[in-house]
Design a protein around this nucleic acid. Structure first.
Lengths: 195, 195, 195, 195
DNA sequence: AATGAATGAGGTTTCATTCAT
DNA sequence: AATGAATGAAACCTCATTCAT
């Protein structure tokens, strides 16, 4: 029931791709096994259940994400620089864990209702605290506009970044850093041309 | 297999709520029937299948959306005014068909692989043509910035609007028009304070 | 998920027969369905799970048994008459619920380790209290022999009665009352001929 | 597929404990392996199959039992002394092979339907012949009561002895011989106090 | 002698769907 | 219009067994 970490990692990566492409519920264990070149039952040598695969995929992603976020938040940057760093780290995370991010986007809301995935709600609250807090600090410091509903701004920035997981393909035309740069430019300066 | 249009409408609205809340695949026919106060089998007096419910829900939404979009696009407005009108109509549509929009966001990508829902791909291409075309026209007219990858801009604007369906609740603090106004302000002018 | 009580009763009786004949674990849901003339999946219209069938079978038996036992214990009989009444009611219960009794005998010990069937342990303790208490009262009253280990006596009497479920067939040569009479005669007077 | 006899013996003893505690069907090969401190597949170096472990466990027990029974039956004792000797040997066997006896009690009936375990039926018939014959001889010799259904008496004595395997723990308060003595006293003289 | 990984058959359960009433 | 009962396919999962190492 333990099995070598490398094999697990491989299989989780495979499973994540299929979950992301087809949706968790629409993904049968057999499809994952097919993609891994084995029989459905064989997956159970490595994992307890389909659900535990999902759990591991999401947890690995969130753990890594929070390690990066925590580093950013601990750096003592100003609000604008913090937002820039968070956005950049987010795109890097999408680059590294594209499938996991896509799954998280699609499934997290209704997964939170299940006890096993209740921790997702906690992560989301922390997330809100970090981003919303930074935006509010920015408004107070007169770095960000004060005439906007800050919660609306929060959702705008948050969603705008993460939905990118639905179309992003690693190894594409733009590096994560370049995408982050352009996104930040849009979000901070707007797309309208200024005279 | 006939049944009054009003009852169908009611049942479709119920089904849409459940699909939006739980995901199409995770929604069993029994859950829909429970929410409608009837037994699972009874739904088949009104509808051919679970899939046809989904089809009707999405089609009703898309038909209405395109009626509005077509009116906007036929109005001969400038690029900026066109974008403003499209965004505003989109938020109105989210207000009217929140559940359908949420379903569309979550499921359309992988539904497109099924023949029955191939038309979703067509709709999406039309959508891209309308929005991307307007943005390109705006760049050419020097209304929108030329230093951004216009496809990235397109995705940014598109996602920015539609993900709102995942948190929007009709009857909330802001009217759809107010939300549209603030979103447009963010997208066009940016969230950074200008000196 | 409710369904008519009569149909449930029929199906439970069928399931109990198969459980008793083959053992709970060796009984597949398909075998029960075959015996009931339906498909395996159809059983799930009436019952939540194979385990819940077992639970209902055992609970119905224990509820009825305790109703009878409680009546006996409340009657204020002497120790010998109490034992006689308990033995007689037990054989009547074997007559009425042979399959359930046989299942109980074979499975209860290891079922008790599962939380869902923890109540079986409680029932068993009550059982011991009633029988052992009566035997001890009989020893004190000089109705039963004092030279035997009373716990050994308890197990002897208890097992003596209940194992009968493994060979008893309703409608056989002897009525439950006749079997009870002979068993009591053996237990009380012994099988050796006295001069 | 050879392996030392001692290791086999150890593993069979372990398997017997688990079979007795959980039931044969409910016992997975993995549970046995866990109890033996090895992996499931490793058991197949020592044994052909789970079934063959069961077979060896039961056969070892029955072989030993019959060796003792045959000695008793060949001794030319009277009916009462024969019953006393058989009961005593039975309790000794329970003491030595508790797990095997418990398994036999629980599983033999439905195992007999499988060709591989058909020999169990033969053993049971021999058993019945020995015990029932002795009882009948005792009735004819006016050693045992004639007013009881002798088949009922047979089942009474037989079950009464063997069910003890379900609660007996080696090394407990009473030696097998002491338990046999008290059981015989109960069976032969009854539990009622005589004036 | 044992491990690690896999197989494949079969088990329990779910669920969209059907249909007589 | 709706119910109650059933079907049948397919899903998740278990487990005895095999086999290269």
């Amino acid at each position: 029931m333990s099995a070598s970490p490398e094999r697990r990692e491989e299989l989780l990566a495979t499973a994540a791709e299929v979950f992301a492409a087809q949706g968790y519920n629409a993904t049968t264990v057999r499809k994952i096994a097919d993609a891994a070149g084995m029989l459905a039952g064989s997956l159970y040598y490595h994992f307890d259940s389909k659900e535990s695969m999902l759990d591991e995929i999401l947890s690995a992603f969130l753990d890594e994400l929070w390690a990066r976020y925590d580093a950013v938040l601990a750096a003592g940057l100003g609000p604008r620089e913090t937002i820039e760093a968070l956005v950049t780290e987010s795109f890097r995370e999408i680059d590294r864990h594209r499938a996991a991010v896509a799954i998280y986007q699609k499934e997290s809301r209704h997964l939170q209702t299940q006890p096993r995935f209740a921790h997702l709600a906690g992560s989301q609250q922390q997330f809100e605290k970090a981003w919303l807090g930074t935006l509010e600090r920015g408004v107070a410091d007169q770095v960000f506009r004060a005439d906007l509903d800050v919660r609306l701004t929060y959702r705008f920035v948050r969603d705008t970044v993460w939905v990118a997981a639905s179309w992003y393909r690693p190894g594409g035309q733009h590096s994560p850093e370049e995408i982050a740069r352009q996104y930040l430019s849009m979000v901070l300066e707007g797309i309208a041309l200024r005279e």
